[in-house]
């Protein structure tokens, strides 16, 4: 775009961030407002620096949960950016996205959706259909649709995001597991338990493969252990309890690797419980507790 944030605005931004982090909004806000006034006077209301300053102040308002005020500022910043950078600029997409986030925070999902949609179109146009930033945008769009109960759209968006992450970043990228987890949540909301279960198992198998390189008789993902333990409890009379199954250190591995895996353990555990597979559920829940 050719636009660069002037050094003094950068400095001011850092200062504002520090004040905001300390909760000193009574200092941060007037500082921003004064700078905004100065910029408007010296550079004119439509200058890109004014848009940047509006963004900085919007962040402070956002941190104070003043979403309405923040959105007002971002709308002004949006008009400036559209007229100075063009309607299809990444900065316009980013501003649209953040506006959508602010609307979303206020539960205005219906208003947020078209903004998010436009941000998506810009990113597709500028970055191509398979860029990870497109997947990020799809993720936000899916979430907005989920809040409106538009599950068909949610599935479509998450599936696309998943394909992008898998294709561009590889199966081990944390975004893959995260998106699968989100998609599974969407399935659960619709009562599609089998589909959710498949995804949870995929996540756990992938986490296992990442740690041990393969799945074989000696290296099984945790859900296979859980189901075996379930089977054993059904076929054998438990006297003095089943000996504790050693998970091959798997839980240690998932401990550091990701909170998503932990969530997945608990979610699949809940699904097992729903099916009355209590031993299997306990196995996963225990693993989740250990790895927390």
């Amino acid at each position: 775009s050719g636009y660069e944030i002037p050094a003094r605005l950068r400095t001011l931004h850092n200062l504002v961030i520090q004040y905001a982090a300390q909760g000193r909004y009574e200092v941060a806000v007037p500082l921003c407002k004064q700078a905004l006034e100065d910029l408007e006077r010296t550079s004119g209301r439509g200058h890109p620096d004014v848009a940047t300053m509006l963004n900085i102040l919007a962040l402070v308002y956002r941190d104070q949960n003043k979403y309405k005020e923040a959105a007002h500022l971002l709308n002004d910043a949006l008009s400036i950016r559209e007229s100075t950078l063009g309607r299809d600029h990444p900065a316009v997409a980013a501003t649209l996205n953040n506006l959508a986030v602010l609307y979303g925070k206020r539960g205005k999902y219906k208003e947020a959706e078209p903004l998010c949609q436009r941000a998506l179109e810009i990113r597709e146009k500028v970055l191509g259909n398979d860029h990870p930033d497109v997947a990020k945008q799809l993720n936000n769009l899916a979430l907005l649709c989920q809040n409106q109960g538009k599950y068909e759209a949610v599935e479509r968006y998450y599936r696309r995001a998943l394909a992008i992450y898998e294709g561009q970043l590889g199966p081990d990228n944390p975004n893959v597991a995260r998106t699968k987890n989100n998609l599974a949540s969407c399935y659960l909301k619709q009562g599609k338990y089998a589909e959710a279960e498949t995804l949870y198992k995929e996540i756990l198998t992938q986490a296992h493969v990442q740690e041990f390189g393969s799945v074989d008789d000696n290296h099984k993902p945790i859900w296979m252990h859980a189901e075996e333990r379930e089977e054993m409890s059904k076929t054998q009379h438990r006297e003095g309890g089943t000996p504790y199954v050693e998970y091959g250190g798997w839980y240690k591995a998932c401990k550091v690797s990701s909170p998503t895996v932990n969530t997945t353990l608990r979610n699949l555990g809940a699904l097992y419980r729903r099916q009355g597979k209590l031993e299997a559920a306990e196995t996963l829940e225990e693993c989740a507790l250990r790895s927390r």
Binding site: A91, L143, S185
Partner: peptide, 20 residues
């Protein structure tokens, strides 16, 4: 029948708005 432990999903803010 406990509800599944779904993590609260959050809309993601784009921090790049300040780098243009």
């Amino acid at each position: 029948d406990r509800p599944p432990a779904n993590k609260q999903q959050q809309l993601e803010w784009d921090d790049s708005t300040l780098s243009y």
